[in-house]
Simulated assay, not measured.
Amino acid sequence: MKCLIVAAGQGVRLREKGELKPLILLKDVPLIEHVIERACIAGLDGFVVVSGYRGEELRSELDRFSAGRDIRIAHVINDAWKRANGVSVLAAKRQLTAPFVLTMCDHLIDPDIYRDLLAAKIEPDTVTLAVDYNIGSSLNDPDDVTRVKCSDGRIQQIGKSLSDFNAIDTGAFLCTPMIFEALEESQAHGDDSISGAMNVLARWGKARVLDVRGKVWLDVDDPAGFGKAERLLDLGRI
């Protein structure tokens, strides 16, 4: 199964560590290579990376990595990279006509989370989000996480400003091409985010959740998250 990685934004919150977030060295390895390595361990065997900000630099580095490791990486260019992340996902529509995994270039995910997604039943025209019910986890910034209200294995609502929520979005999804219809619907109404599309899918009854059950994941979005990532890698926890 293919894996789509969103890597188009500026990453301004991590700018002190480097100019281009996907290529910031984490334990001497570019961040996006950590992401790809974990997906490969889980059995994903082809990658589509959406680039935008300083995209030529990123694509050149990924081509070098791809050739050296014999990992298939296709590129999609998002010239509208200043818009929210759903625009990047929609830009890859022509590349992805079968179920695929979606993740972010700055999310370190335990390969077992990907394995659980791959093992999940793919219901027709649905999208499944891996969620963490441990909302008090110290690993991720509680003021920056995307919050999810779930019930009976389904998403009711998702967004950063929810006051009533019981789970956190890990940034790992098992998608069918229905995600693209939801993105088009959401963007037509002014919401360019992936969360906007998930809210559309929730209204359609097509947004599912999968519990990560304590497995480790981390959004490496700022210097604090970067420090946590270094410690987790030192401990072999991710």
Rank of each mutant, 00 (worst) to 15 (best):
E19T: 09
A207M: 02
P142E: 12
M104D: 15
F173L: 10
S88A: 07
G136R: 10
L233P: 07
L183R: 08
Q156E: 15
G214H: 09
E16A: 00
L117Q: 09
R231K: 15
L4P: 01
P30H: 01
F226A: 08
I71H: 08
Q156S: 12
D125E: 15
E184V: 09
C40T: 07
A84S: 12
G136M: 11
D219N: 12
G214A: 09
L25S: 05
Q95F: 03
S138H: 10
S195F: 13
P142T: 07
D116T: 05
G11W: 05
S195H: 14
L102G: 03
V148G: 11
L14S: 12
S60W: 02
F180C: 14
Y53D: 14
C175N: 10
A98C: 11
D125T: 08
I155V: 12
K206F: 13
A224H: 10
V216F: 04
E184T: 10
L4S: 00
L235I: 00
G52P: 07
I109N: 01
S66P: 05
G205D: 09
L235F: 01
D144L: 15
L183P: 08
L232A: 04
R72C: 11
A67P: 01
I73Y: 01
N199W: 03
F100K: 00
A172D: 04
S138L: 11
S60V: 03
E16W: 00
L162D: 08
R15I: 06
G153I: 13
L90Y: 12
L162C: 06
V6N: 05
L25A: 06
S151M: 14
